[in-house]
């Protein structure tokens, strides 16, 4: 029988696997708006991982920067330039 620390560490490991998949899709995606959305998925999962490692002060700073401000700045930049990445 697993203790509850091991259960929490297994949940954290599952979350980190999905964050790696999200980063991979964000790198190979050609449509830049979809890449921003994949980056937002990765940021949300990272906030959960920081929470599970008992760092609520880092979560309080990480969420406004990585979920709020960073997609806004990147979307303003995309709307000034092109939408699709070229070779």
């Amino acid at each position: 029988m697993l203790t509850y620390e091991e259960i929490m560490l297994l949940i954290t490991a599952l979350a980190s696997v999905f964050s790696v998949i999200a980063v991979y899709y964000a790198i190979i995606e050609k449509n830049l708006v979809r890449a921003v959305v994949f980056s937002a998925i990765q940021s949300t999962i990272y906030a959960f991982i920081y929470y599970m490692f008992m760092a609520p002060d880092i979560v309080l700073v990480y969420i406004p920067v990585a979920v709020g401000l960073y997609p806004a700045v990147i979307l303003i930049l995309i709307s000034k330039t092109e939408k699709v990445e070229k070779q």
């Binding site: 708006v33 959305v37 906030a47 609520p56 979560v59 969420i63 406004p64 979920v67 709020g68 997609p71």
Partner: peptide, 20 residues
């Protein structure tokens, strides 16, 4: 003391929604 993170998460995801 861990509860302050949930308020921040719920508020900033709404901002992402409105941007998109």
């Amino acid at each position: 003391i861990l509860i302050g993170t949930a308020i921040v998460l719920a508020l900033w995801i709404y901002a992402l929604d409105i941007y998109i």
